[in-house]
Amino acid sequence: MTRRPIGYYVHHHGAGHAARASAIADHAEGRITLIGTNIAGRTGVHPYLDLPDDRLAPGFDGRDGTTERPAALHYAPLDHEGIRHRVAAITHWIAENRPALMIVDVSCEIAMLARLASVATVCVRLGGRRDDVPHLEAFRAATALIAPFAEALDDPATPDWVRRKTFYAPGLVQRSNAAGVDPASVLVVGGRGGAAIDGAAWARAARATPDRTWRIIGDSTPLPDAPPNLEVLGWVDDAAARIACAGIVVGSAGDGVVGAVLAARRPFVCLPEDRPFDEQRSKARQLAATGAALVCEDARTADWPSLLALVERRDSAAQAALDDPDGAARLAAHVLALADGERG
């Protein structure tokens, strides 16, 4: 029996969506096709469908500019040529390949499009309060839901029926075998999709802790007068290894950063960023409640000597409870079972 393919829609904002997709596809027997914007050459051995970039329209700002739209949609611009080409590319792929499932990470509109094209959907759920009509209707229309985090990190207000439909899959991150931790080092991690790290704040933090070595990876604002114990490395290819070797990690509450820190069991100071649906602040509250991180609301005013001393006394058992080293393989098996068990 020929097993039908699975489509995986990869949202272009931030790096976490693509990382999750690749982690799952690595264990899915070559059946997943990655579908996204500007992904040609970035999917390794996995097949892909590169979509036209709808952000190229003049004056694009991520808003649809309409005074009225269907309640089940977040983004439905009128007379947008880029959207028309994206919809045509996706539905053409569906018609030609007859996928058993479409995993959507993330877009309420793509989830509804796939369902309208008679394809069962599996929606990835991000954190925060996603109880608005578009999210709930996309969840209701889905065959199953995926949360790329442990259930203990879910927002307390998440409806029970959504939780029951959700497969919780922490651990969808790159893991490092790097040996040796530099206990005096502090690694500041900036993710894609957010604001640049405030270099001046980290310069002040480094000056306040001269016995520690600070390093910044990711985007950072300029540092014309950096202290000698602060190094700005920019974007790196070995972020997982650097996290594993750091004495303490400071970073946002994005799924990628949180997952990598939990996998490495490193002391974590969480700096939640403002995101729609209270995504990062909700995750930060749950991390603090479980004892897996200390939360700092403002790096500019933090008492860094005290904060770092406090966080490095934390027990890593709380982090281990929120991680699953086999998360990607377990989730891939779940997805394949959904694809084959219900549609043959």
Rank of each mutant, 00 (worst) to 15 (best):
Y8A: 05
H12T: 03
H13I: 02
G14V: 01
A18Q: 14
A18E: 10
A21R: 07
D26F: 00
A28W: 00
E29P: 09
G30N: 05
T33A: 15
T37L: 02
T43C: 12
P47F: 03
L49W: 01
D54K: 11
E68S: 12
R69V: 08
P70I: 00
A71I: 06
A76V: 05
A76H: 10
P77C: 08
E81W: 00
A89I: 05
H92C: 07
A95H: 14
V104A: 13
A111K: 03
A117D: 11
V119Y: 01
V124K: 06
L126F: 09
G127L: 08
R129E: 04
R130E: 09
L136N: 07
E137S: 15
A138D: 13
A138I: 00
A147I: 00
F149C: 09
E151Q: 14
A152H: 06
P156F: 02
P156D: 01
A157N: 13
T158C: 08
F167N: 05
F167R: 13
Y168W: 11
P170W: 00
P170E: 08
A178Q: 11
P183V: 00
G190T: 03
G191A: 13
R192D: 05
A195E: 03
I197P: 11
R204C: 11
D225T: 05
D225S: 12
P228N: 07
N229R: 07
E231Q: 13
R242A: 07
R242M: 11
G247V: 01
S252N: 15
G259N: 04
V261I: 15
A263W: 04
F268N: 13
V269L: 14
V269P: 13
F277N: 08
D278P: 04
Q280N: 04
T290S: 14
G291Y: 01
R300N: 04
R314C: 15
D315Q: 07
A318Q: 01
L322K: 00
D323S: 13
P325W: 03
A333F: 01
A333N: 10
L338H: 03
A339G: 14
D340C: 06
G341D: 05
R343H: 11
